[in-house]
Design a protein around this nucleic acid. Structure first.
Lengths: 167, 167
DNA sequence: GTTAGTGCAAACCTTTTGCAGCTCT
DNA sequence: AGAGCTGCAAAAGGTTTGCACTAAC
């Protein structure tokens, strides 16, 4: 279950594979979710209560610099934290539902097209690309339509006290 | 030179167009660059020395929530600040040179293709999309090749003997 | 005249840094 | 054995909040 590719890459550069880094790598790679630094810290602490928050940040910086993990902000849904994932998978876009927070991944060919066009038209040598899309998932579109409808009704027919409020 | 569309949108929602907000809107829309909160604050202060940093943040939040400006991180080149631009232009990707920091904009069709595919395949209603690409611009590719070459020379032929085993 | 908006100070939160001691190779 | 790494404390940077005063509508 370990991200062998990442561990090899680290070893090759003389970076030590400490217990703390193992824990964090396994979490980033194995959780299946996009975790932020604080979540990583809390989960890592369960395996090693002495593991320090600072170590989380230092490990993330190390992995970022080595190009082994990507840093995402997921459209700032939920705040300004950053989220992390390994770069083992094929390049993909993240599609975030701004209502329920669900994150989908998209692997279509426009991503490769974009890379090629940027390289060709702008002469860039691309190291990393990131696409994030915010919107409403199909489930939340329906819910939102209902919310808006209810808000309209509430505005059109005001002063309909459901709760007792002395006045 | 004012972003009339934005001002209308604000007025329509009963948001007051204060002197401070005018200054900030003009800067975001008219500077032609991607400014972060601190830069905006410094530039705004030149027009109104009493304008407070807090007002910058509050205005940015307001504009973000209204969907009137986009918040970018430009691949975190230069730190974790956020950069801002109005949403008046056609959707575009930002291509950042990780060596010199130059930001190019890309308007190609893969962006629209991506939108369409995400809507079709995932059933999303897209509100906002953001693509950021990091790499080396053509100018910096050459410079970087030279840097690497020089680093290799410095390691291969130093004044003192090599530490590694002889090859 | 109301109510939203501003300035100021202080709090807050995430991330970084300095340093002494520990540990991986 | 020794460079590299960790933990701790404290600082740094960016952003938010509470409150009294001000100004846009």
């Amino acid at each position: 279950m370990e991200p062998a590719g990442i561990e090899d890459s680290l070893r090759r550069r003389g970076v030590r594979l400490t217990r703390q880094r193992q824990i964090l790598l396994d979490l980033i790679d194995g959780s299946g979710k996009h975790l932020d630094a604080e979540q990583l810290y809390q989960m890592a602490k369960e395996q090693d209560p002495k593991l320090n928050r600072v170590t989380v940040y230092r490990t993330l910086k190390l992995l970022k610099q080595g190009g082994l993990v990507d840093e995402l902000d997921l459209m700032h849904y939920g705040g300004d934290q950053h989220y992390y994932e390994t770069r083992l998978k094929q390049e993909h876009a993240h599609i975030i539902c701004l209502r329920c927070g669900k994150v989908e991944e998209f692997f279509g060919d426009p991503l490769q097209r974009l890379r090629k066009q940027v390289e060709a038209h702008l002469g860039f040598q691309i190291l990393i690309a990131r696409t994030e899309v915010g919107g409403y998932c199909s489930h939340c579109q329906a819910l939102r339509a209902r919310e808006i409808e209810q808000a309209r009704e509430a505005e059109a027919a005001p002063a309909r006290p459901r709760k007792r409020k002395p006045g």
